[in-house]
Design a protein around this nucleic acid. Sequence first.
DNA 1: AACCACTTACGAAATTTTTCGTACAAATAA
DNA 2: TTATTTGTACGAAAAATTTCGTAAGTGGTT
Lengths: 130, 130
Amino acid sequence: MSAKKNNAKPTEKELEILHVLWQKGHCSVKEVHQEMGGDASNGYTTILKFLQIMFEKNIVSRQKSGKLHLYKAIATKENTKQQMVDKIIDTVFEGSASQLVMSALGNNKSSKEELNAIRKYLDELEEGEK
Amino acid sequence: MSAKKNNAKPTEKELEILHVLWQKGHCSVKEVHQEMGGDASNGYTTILKFLQIMFEKNIVSRQKSGKLHLYKAIATKENTKQQMVDKIIDTVFEGSASQLVMSALGNNKSSKEELNAIRKYLDELEEGEK
DNA sequence: AACCACTTACGAAATTTTTCGTACAAATAA
DNA sequence: TTATTTGTACGAAAAATTTCGTAAGTGGTT
């Protein structure tokens, strides 16, 4: 029997916490807690518990530093984003990435610059495909 | 007291059910149940219960037809997709739609046709923006 | 009427996610 | 040493989601 796999999608709260970890790198529980708004939003032990659970689930790693634990996200933000995008494509867009793209651009007014960046990206994709 | 609002995001199971309803229009519980794989996947009463809950949450409407209820999604697939996309942009992509777009295209090999469709769509967007 | 097939309604159990109180451990100050 | 501070661990409660057993209603047949 081996360590648990890391293919589960994070829950909402886990994702919030991951965001802090992605942004700040190694974090103590306290840092995460504060970054998330302190006791106004979540009790300290709530965050602690989550980090412990996420550690067990292999979503974060940790290391001792003095008497406290420093936590760190295992999956990169990019991987996680990719997973979530893949899933939504699969679940809601019948497997069609372009449908998602149109939906993404349709509502949110993207700037000309962004649209051009996308064009450029399309070019690159087709280049590489030849 | 009024009817409940319809701004909650559907849960996973609810989304599965919505898919059937979007695809088939009006459905009896039985139809939804069968479409979702019959008893192998979910008990009949499980689906029934979900449809009842979704009715209370104002996610679906229903009407009597003979002795059975026919259920129908209230939100369109498009609206729901849009909501989900907006949310993921907000939650994971720092509000940048184009980031999502690139992520969507990066992994999943989209066909040339799809890429072209996206180009066309970009053109339309910029047209309309003038 | 009594029976049967079919469908809905209700309520509770099971599971998962989220929250938090309390106990314990280690280091430090008095 | 005793108290205080700071952090972790544990376990249980609360809330939300999912599952399903069982009762009850409806309409059609005999």
